[in-house]
Amino acid sequence: MLPFMALLLAFALGFVSGLRAFTAPAALFLARGGIAGIVLAVLAVAELVGDKLPQMTSRTSPPALIARLISGGVVGWFIAAAHSGPAPVGAIIGVVGALVGAYGGKAARIAAIDRIGAIPAALIEDVIAIALAAFVVTR
């Protein structure tokens, strides 16, 4: 059985995956060190830039959602394994977090666009994703 804190961390990092597919794994692998973290960080920056482009597809379209679910599952798996728990449970919690992040983030962003505009809403979402990922991987 995973400790509650590990479940919470897996959910939170999965939530970040729902907001930005590459940010959560980039943060996790940067914290671990190595070339994988650098490669994922470059992909995360590209995603952050690409997200602002008008031709970007919705995060809930099948390819984007599948990428977010896989990302959430992977980070949840690693969080659970780091806490000596059953990795499949962590993966499931990460996927649930990614679903909440994808759909909740989309709803929040649409509401924010109506109030402050598209680019400020996207930038706020970026800050939330990066800050939450940094918070989780430093625990």
Rank of each mutant, 00 (worst) to 15 (best):
L40R: 04
T57R: 14
A102K: 04
L7E: 12
A118R: 15
G50N: 13
A102L: 03
L19V: 09
P120E: 10
V137R: 00
I93A: 13
I113R: 12
K106P: 01
P88F: 11
Y103I: 08
P62W: 15
V16N: 04
V74I: 15
V137W: 00
G76P: 02
P88M: 05
K52M: 11
L2V: 04
S71I: 06
L132S: 08
I110G: 05
R139M: 09
V89D: 03
I79N: 09
G85W: 13
F135S: 04
V89F: 14
M56W: 11
G97F: 03
A12F: 09
G90I: 15
L132G: 03
V127K: 06
Q55A: 15
G76H: 02
V75L: 11
A67P: 00
W77Y: 15
A44R: 01
F4K: 09
H83D: 10
V74F: 14
I116M: 14
A91N: 02
P63H: 06
P54I: 01
A108G: 02
L19H: 04
K106M: 13
D51T: 11
G101S: 04
S71E: 04
A122P: 00
S58M: 15
A6H: 11
L43V: 12
A98I: 00
G14V: 02
L7A: 14
I128W: 01
G97M: 05
I70S: 05
A44Q: 02
K106E: 13
S84P: 02
A134Y: 12
I79F: 14
A121C: 11
G18F: 09
V136D: 00
L123E: 08
A107T: 06
A134C: 13
T60P: 03
G33K: 11
A10E: 05
G34F: 01
P25L: 07
A111K: 10
A24I: 07
T23W: 03
T23M: 13
V42Y: 01
A102E: 01
S61D: 12
V42Q: 05
V16S: 02
A31E: 10
A67K: 09
R139Y: 04
A82C: 06
E47D: 09
G101P: 00
L19Q: 07
A6L: 07
G90L: 09
A118L: 10
V39Q: 05
G37W: 07
T23D: 06
I124G: 12
G14F: 04
I124A: 15
A64N: 15
V45P: 03
V89P: 00
A10G: 06
P3G: 10
F29S: 06
G37L: 03
M1I: 01
D114L: 06
L2D: 04
T138Q: 09
G34T: 08
M1C: 01
A80S: 12
R59E: 00
E47P: 01
I70P: 01
A102P: 04
R68S: 04
F22L: 13
L48V: 13
L132K: 06
I93E: 03
I116F: 12
P86T: 10
